[in-house]
Computed example of a mutant assay.
Amino acid sequence: MSLHPQIAAALASMPAPPPGPLDPVAMRAGEEAHVLPVAERLPLHAVQDRTVPTPAGDVPVRIYTPAEADSYGLLVYFHGGAFFLGSLETHDHVARNLAAETGLRVVSVGYRRAPEAAFPAGLQDCYGVVRWAAEHGADLGWDGDTLAVAGDSSGGTFAAAVAAMAHDDGNDTITHQVLLYPSLDLDFDVDRYASLRENAEGYGLETAGLKPFNAFYLDSGADPDDPLVSPTKRADLTGLPPALVVTAEHDPMRDEGELYGRRLADVGVPVTVSRYAGAGHGFVQHFSWIPEYARVYREIADFVHGR
C-alpha cells in the first residue's frame, strides 16, 4: 500500500534539512526540543533515573515500573538514532509504552554515542547493562524468567549484537530479542537489497542519507564487516534467543531485517517477522499514536509472553 496518509502529511510539512555537513550537537538539540514535558507523558507506577556500574564504566539508565508487583520480567531497551542521535529523553515515550503494554520493568540505556565515543563504547555500555540487570536481579525485582532486549533502528543493531555477545559468552539469560526496523547491515551498497532502491526517496529516511548518517559511527572505528557492527555478517546464528523482527513497508532497511529473520528461522531460532504496511522507518518512535501502528506494542507484549 502507499505511505499512510497521516505519515505522508507529516513528512510533507517538515522543513528541508539545512545544507552542509551534519551537526550532531544541533541535531540533538532539535530532537530534545520536541520532547513532551514530564506532566504530559504516559503515567506509570514509577520512573527512576539511576547510574549503573559496568566494566566499561558508569552508564545512565532510566527504569520504568508499570505497576506495583512482587516481581517482574525485565526488558532492556536501546534507543535508535544512527548511533549519534537519540537519548533517554527522546525515546522516553517508547520505553513508557513498552512498560505499560508488556507489564515488564523496562531499563532504558543511555549509552555513549558517536562521534564523541568511539566504537565499541556504546555497544559495551549496552551489554554491560544487560549483564548488570541479570546479576542484580534481586535489586530489580526480576522474576528470573523473562529478560528481553529490544531496540529500534541502530538500537536494534545493538540488541542483535548484545544477544550474540551473550551467546558467545555462554550467557543464556537473554530470553527474547525485539528488533524494530533494525539496521543490521552497515555496508551501504545500494544493490545489496531491493528495498534500498524501492524506498530510496520520499519516505522520510532516504537511501542516500544512510551513509552520511552512519558515518560518525563508522569513522569511529566500527567496521561494516564486523558481525557486531553488521549482525547479518554473523556466519552462524544458531542458538540465539527467539526474535521478533518488525519492519516497515517503506523503509530502505526493510529487506536486511527480513533477511535476518529468515536466517534465524533457517537455523531453528523461533522468529516472527512482522511487516507494517504503509509505514516508514522510525514509525514506532514517531507514529505509534496512529491506531494501525499502536498495535506494535501489543505485538511485542504477545511475543515476550508467548501468546
Rank of each mutant, 00 (worst) to 15 (best):
A166I: 03
Q48I: 13
F158T: 07
D225Y: 14
P291M: 02
S87W: 01
V107K: 09
A138R: 15
P17R: 08
S13T: 13
G155R: 06
V284T: 11
P242Y: 03
H250L: 11
R105V: 01
I300R: 10
V271Y: 04
K211N: 14
P252G: 03
L3E: 07
V61P: 02
A69K: 11
P18Y: 03
V273D: 11
T232Q: 11
W142D: 09
E206C: 06
A159V: 05
G86S: 09
T102I: 00
M27S: 14
Y77M: 05
K211E: 15
R298P: 13
Y127I: 12
G122C: 04
S108I: 00
A12M: 11
R262V: 01
H45I: 04
L3H: 06
G282Q: 01
D185R: 12
S230W: 05
P291W: 08
G268Y: 01
A99N: 04
L179N: 04
A39Q: 12
T207M: 13
G306I: 07
P15W: 03
F84T: 13
H79W: 03
M165H: 05
M165Q: 05
A277P: 13
G239V: 02
A100I: 12
M253L: 15
L123F: 03
A33P: 07
A248V: 10
P224T: 06
A118L: 13
A148F: 04
N97T: 13
P21K: 04
M27P: 01
F216G: 05
A163D: 03
H93M: 15
G280Q: 09
F287M: 14
P24L: 13
G20H: 03
F119T: 11
E31L: 14
V52C: 09
I174C: 02
P18N: 04
A114C: 12
A26Q: 12
R112P: 01
R50E: 15
A150R: 00
S2K: 14
Y203A: 08
A29Q: 14
